[in-house]
Design a protein around this nucleic acid. Structure first.
Lengths: 154, 154, 154, 154
DNA sequence: AATGAATGAGACTTCATTCAT
DNA sequence: CATGAATGAAGTCTCATTCAT
C-alpha cells in the first residue's frame, strides 16, 4: 500500500500499472492479487486506511476536554500537519475523487460528510455559547476554511 | 475541444479514449488526428484556451481604472463566476496538474505564476498606499483566498 | 471465422487463444477485435452462420414438393452430408453447448427447437396421412434418429 | 473426484480452476496436489474410475448365462440407467474427448475400443447362430445404437 | 481533408503449480 | 500430510496512433 500511495501520488491511478506497484513493493503481481482482488480494491483500501486515520485523530481532539476554540485550532492544525507529514498520501487523498470509481467516490463522500458534520457541530456549539460569530452560514465557513487549507497543502 | 473538456471532466484524461472524444464531437479519429497530433496535444490546447480566456479577463480588470479594492473583488468574482458558468471546464482546469504530462504541467505552472504575480502586484500596491493591511505575507494571502475559492467552486 | 472454426474444432473454445486464431487468419489481434467485440462474440457469430445455413437447407427441402418420405430422407441425408463435408464445423456444432456461454447456449437451444419442431411437424403429417407408423412418440423418433446420425458423424 | 466430476460437467475441464475443485471438496489446493500430481492427472483418474465401472458391469452381463438377446438388452439398459443415475458423470464421460489431452484421449479410445469389441463379438455370435439379422454391418449397428442412446441420455 | 481499418504494445487479471512452514 | 502464500507465464482485451484510400 505504501508503494501504491507513492505511485498514485506521482503518476495518478490510471497511469500506474499494477506491475509497477508490485515491483516497487518487491512482490510479484500474483502476490499482489492474492491480497487485493482488483487494482480498484487496492485503491479502496488505501483510501479507507487514510480516512480512518484522519477521522480517528479528529475524533480524539473533538472528544478531548480542550476549550472549543482550541479544539478547532487543533483539528485544522492536524490537517495541515498530516498533509505535510505525508505529502504522497495527501496528494492521493485530495485528488478529485469523482474521477475514481463510483465505489471509491461514494466511500469518500460518506466519510467526508461524517467528518464535516462533526466539525460543523463544534462550530454550532461555539456559535450558541458565543465563542464564535453566528452571522455566517456554518457550512460555508467549514468549506471555505478546509478548502483553503487543502489548497495550501498541495 | 468542447467534447474533450466534457469527457476529461467526467472521466479524467487517462480514462477517456480518443475514439470517444471523436465520437462525441461527431468526427472520425482520423480527422481528429489531422488537427491534433497527439492526445496530449489536445489537452495542451484545451488548457491554453482556458488559460488565455481567464488571463485576458483578469488583465482587462487589472488594467481598468476601477479602485484597487474593487479590482480585486472583480477578479475574485470572475473566478467564481467563470467556474460556475462552465463547471466542466473548471473541473479540468483545477485538476492536480502534476499528474498530467510534464509539458502541460510546465505550461500551467508558468501561466499560473504570471497570474499570481499580477494579482500579487495589485495587493502590494494596495499595501503600499494603505488600502490593505500589510502585516500578512502577500503570497500566503493570495494562495489562501484562491485556494478557498477553487475549493468552493468544485 | 474459418480459422476459428478449425481451431475450436481441434482444441476447443477455452483452449484456443485469440492470438492463435488471429495468426491463423493472418490478421493481428487488434484487427480481430475490430470485428468481434469479444472472443465469445466470435463464437456466437460462428454458431449463427452454421445454424442459418443448416436451417435454410432444411426449409428448402421441407417446402419443396417432394413426397413426404423423400423429404425426411433428404433432410437426414443433408445432415449427414454437411457433417461429412465440413468436419471441423460439425465438431464445433455438435459440441456439448451447455459448456459454452449462456448466450450461445440459449441461442443454440432456440434454433434447435425450431428445427426439431419443423421436422416433427413433417412426421406428424406423415402419421396422419398414413405414410408413417403412428404408434411411436414423435419426439422420441426425432431425437433417436438425430442422435444416431450426429454420433455417427463424429 | 466427486467435486471434480460435478464441476467438469457443469463448466468444462478448462473452465474449472483447481482452486474451485479443492474448495468444493473441502480441501486445500496443496492437499489436492498431494494426491494428484496434475490437473490432468485428476481428469485421467476420473475417467479411469468411470470406465472401469462401466466395463465391469458390461462384462458381468456378457459373462452371465442369459440368452444373447437379453444380454444385449441388459447392456444397453445399463448404459441408459447409469447415464440417468449420474448425469454429471455422463456429461463428463460423453464429452468430445478429442478435446482433452492426448493422454486422456488415447486412454478413452482404448477402453472404448475394448468395450465395442466385446459388444460386437456378442452381436456376431448372434448373427452366426441366427438370433440376429446378418445383413447389416456389425460396426454400423453398434455405433448407430450407442450413438442414439448417448444422445438420448444427454 | 476525411475515413476507419489495422497495428501492436501493454494493461489487468487468472491460474496451475510449488514449497517453506 | 496439510497449508496457502507466492510465482510468473499466459490470456483477453484496450487504445493511441498510422496510413492507404
Amino acid at each position: 500500500m505504501r508503494a501504491a500511495i507513492t505511485l498514485f501520488a506521482r503518476k495518478g491511478f490510471d497511469a500506474t500499472p499494477v506491475r509497477e506497484i508490485a515491483d516497487a513493493a518487491g512482490v510479484t503481481t500474483g502476490a499482489l492479487y492474492h491480497y487485493f482482488a482488483t487494482k480498484e480494491d487496492l485503491l479502496v483500501e488505501v483510501y479507507q486506511q487514510m480516512q480512518a486515520g484522519q477521522r480517528l485523530r479528529m475524533e480524539a481532539i473533538a472528544d478531548s476536554d480542550l476549550p472549543l476554540r482550541e479544539k478547532l485550532h487543533a483539528i485544522i492544525s492536524d490537517v495541515v500537519e498530516s498533509t505535510i507529514a505525508d505529502l504522497d498520501e495527501a496528494v492521493v487523498f485530495f485528488q478529485p475523487f469523482h474521477l475514481l470509481s463510483p465505489r471509491v467516490h461514494e466511500m469518500v463522500r460518506a466519510e467526508r460528510r461524517g467528518y464535516h458534520y462533526r466539525v460543523k457541530a463544534l462550530i454550532e456549539e461555539g456559535q450558541r455559547d458565543g465563542t464564535f460569530r453566528a452571522d455566517v452560514p456554518t457550512t460555508l465557513a467549514v468549506s471555505y476554511h478546509f478548502g483553503a487549507v487543502h489548497q495550501l497543502g498541495l
